[in-house]
């Protein structure tokens, strides 16, 4: 088996999701090559060489690859995918954007968002917002896969010493160009990989009052999450959304505060080790999956909790 993993990065550092993708690759087994497609991304290449289990790092450097545009990333991957038995990337915004493009160009069916490797051609993936788990067997000659990061424990970031090989970039796709990026600045740890996540929902009531969530997160060294209702109402930025259509997280502790626990929200957090729910409605569905629940007003409980910590 020879596996190609497409690295996710911002030209400065390797995204932790890639280490989880490498773990999925290790489960399949075989030689692992990582593609770093970017621009002036030598720091990423160095990091990738050091990651555990990597045999070779392919480097494609071009200005057209600086911003991860799907059309250009897909053209690089399409050109080399045929040399591998598997192509894997994270089921992140980046991976979801380009991988289906590769699949269609190669006339193959992608397997999205896998949570388990059963064998080299058989994988488990959640459907219906995680309310069912489907096991599928792929008959395509190259398995094109996106990997749910929370389902695979990241490989060691250090210890490896993979060789590099440069590849030339072809022609940039004319129809798409990057304009601007508006990155949410936060001092909190990254939501996707944080050990503790503190999430607020519509019950928090306003953007101003959402500071109670930020404060608790700060006290716990936790990342901040939100329900869709909280994001839609402008209490929190879109990249905080946890759920079927937001991020999937699986921290050691997940605090759901003023969140009812709709299945679409549960889809993004039900694999957390410990779930704590604070909600004044004792019939809120979140209590059905919470390990510890407090039925009370969040504006009473959260300040008390801050004092206890």
């Amino acid at each position: 088996m020879s596996i190609l993993v497409i690295a996710e990065h911002d030209n400065a550092s390797l995204n932790a999701s890639t280490l989880s993708t490498l773990a999925a690759a290790a489960t399949i087994g075989g030689d692992v090559t990582v593609l770093v497609a970017g621009h002036n991304a030598s720091a990423v290449v160095t990091e990738t060489q050091a990651a555990s289990g990597v045999t070779k790092v392919l480097v494609v450097d071009d200005a057209a690859l600086a911003d991860g545009l799907a059309e250009n990333i897909a053209s690089v991957v399409t050109g080399i995918a045929g040399e591998y038995s598997h192509v894997l990337t994270a089921a992140s915004n980046f991976g979801k954007n380009f991988m289906p493009r590769v699949a269609a160009k190669l006339d193959m069916m992608q397997v999205s968002d896998i949570v388990e490797v059963v064998s080299a051609d058989t994988f488990v993936r959640p459907i219906y917002a995680g309310n069912a788990l489907m096991t599928v067997k792929s008959s395509d000659s190259v398995k094109l896969i996106t990997v749910r990061s929370t389902a695979f424990d990241a490989v060691e970031a250090t210890g490896g010493s993979a060789a590099t090989e440069d590849l030339a970039f072809g022609v940039a796709f004319a129809g798409t160009s990057f304009v601007s990026r508006d990155v949410t600045e936060s001092e909190r740890p990254e939501l996707a990989t944080a050990r503790i996540v503190v999430s607020g929902g519509r019950g928090v009531g306003s953007k101003e009052q959402f500071s109670i969530i930020d404060d608790l997160a700060e006290k716990l060294g936790a990342a901040v999450g939100a329900s869709r209702a909280a994001v839609d109402s402008g209490y929190a930025p879109n990249d905080c959304q946890v759920g079927q259509t937001g991020k999937v997280v699986a921290p050691d502790i997940y605090f759901a505060i003023g969140i009812s626990g709709a299945i679409q929200h549960q889809a993004g957090m039900r694999e957390s080790k410990i779930i704590v729910a604070i909600n004044k409605d004792d019939e809120a569905p979140i209590f059905q999956i919470a390990d510890y629940g407090i039925v009370a007003d969040l504006f009473d409980v959260v300040p008390e909790l801050m004092q206890q910590l």
Binding site: M134, A296, L305
Partner: peptide, 26 residues
Amino acid sequence: RLEVVSVAAPAEREPGIIVADAAELV
């Protein structure tokens, strides 16, 4: 291209408990 081998329900979470207040939670 993908053969559906099986579809299963996800594992249920163990039932949790209701605690009285922040102190008990901590």
